[in-house]
Design a protein around this nucleic acid. Sequence first.
DNA 1: AAGGGAGTTCCAAATTCCGGAACCTTGTCC
DNA 2: GGACAAGGTTCCGGAATTTGGAACTCCCTT
Lengths: 260, 260
Amino acid sequence: MSALTNAIEILHCFSSARPDLSFADVMALTGKPKSSTSRLLRSLRDCGLLEQDPHTRRYRPGLLTFELGRLHRAHDDLISMAERELREVCARTGHTGYIAVLDGYEQVVLRIVPGSNPLRVVNPPGQRTPALATSNGRAMLARLSDEDIRARVPATYPKLPRNSPQNFKQAMARLDEIRRTGVSEAADESIEGVGSQGFALKSGETGEMIGIAVSYSVQATTAAERANVRRELAAMAAKLRRLTGDPLDQATTRVQTGTR
Amino acid sequence: MSALTNAIEILHCFSSARPDLSFADVMALTGKPKSSTSRLLRSLRDCGLLEQDPHTRRYRPGLLTFELGRLHRAHDDLISMAERELREVCARTGHTGYIAVLDGYEQVVLRIVPGSNPLRVVNPPGQRTPALATSNGRAMLARLSDEDIRARVPATYPKLPRNSPQNFKQAMARLDEIRRTGVSEAADESIEGVGSQGFALKSGETGEMIGIAVSYSVQATTAAERANVRRELAAMAAKLRRLTGDPLDQATTRVQTGTR
DNA sequence: AAGGGAGTTCCAAATTCCGGAACCTTGTCC
DNA sequence: GGACAAGGTTCCGGAATTTGGAACTCCCTT
């Protein structure tokens, strides 16, 4: 196991649930001996990938990750184009918009567009969530081959929220539905009382894929309002797919008119 | 030279001036042989620290840096406290606020508070600038020992903007002035037509230091307005130093009344 | 003063890394 | 089409780093 692999293993221990870790935490999480952990943490700290709180001696991601993370945003094109469109939709509907990417069987939030409606933003950028538990996450998965999906979902199916698919078969059924209807919807899953609708966008040029969703309070919205969101998203999807050369371009147009 | 060191060396090649790099760029910048570069880039890409554009094949910071960079924000306390105060000052004065940390002889922008005045934000978070060329950068350096400063400034004095100190002696004179007056000011340095005033804040508890500055258009502000900024900053510095237990607490109060 | 938790340093064995050179791929020019 | 060049990957033996157990230090508690 290379030195880099070990370093990465440590970096992966950090998450929004655990934004900082003690020496012992890292040892427990990685299962490495004390000496190795000590050496590695020191290296990571010295090179700026980690910082150490001088008072509590706990470790957290360092200045270098902050700098590089900002640069990652420069990776624009697809994302910023989608963000522009999403902003308009959110301004019109008042709801909150999300843009995320797939990483393994999880998704990572890249951008948020806060709506005018008073729904707290609960998933800040950088947040990781099982893709099967969100509307845009499922929309992204639905565009992969069945083998690819199977390879991504862990061998032991993860414990997902109540209204999310509870086993692999349910998951595949749900993805198939998205493939047929072109619509992905979620309600009361990751967060109680919050619903969302989303779709996946794939660049015809680079092949990269992002998931775009609009989320709202389930109680505070009527069925008519949700239908409106669906129309807005369908229009946005059609426009973005045309602009980005998404291979789903024609196919989608057909489905969208069908669902109207 | 360890594998990690090499990896970090590559990561340091990225900057806002060069947000993405080709294989050849990395080779040129690190001076490493092709084979080593190839292996290393592949490792970094595989572990998520870098991404590769499928079309141009260029590399850019990866999803992992984005995630970790978000987590770095959690490192709050001192910064968020300063940010709150800075927001109020910026709201009152209409100018743009910056919070930065020192890293070697450079500073890295951590937070920005856009003002209401139409002065474009030119230094986004993550931006690196020679600390000697900014008001808050110099304020931070002024709080270090002379030996520490000498150790940070490169052996060959860097080429700085016109109005910044042009050699080590000028730099030390400027820092001494800050130490005496407690005031750090810049005009027409990193950016033509932009001036700023700043100070350094040091936590009495953790010893960590940040630089806080307010920047404005030189032409569009009167001397009276700049004096007003100075008063606002002095009041803010005094308050924050009291709150954070900055060792400069009493000393500063004396200086501030003196400059009034 | 003893005990223990937390973390660092040491060391020889083992693994990984290094870089030159050969090799492969892709696009381009004649 | 064929040859060339740029860009990039793979191979391999010698060299250097990494590894993890154990001994050690530091600091706090009992």
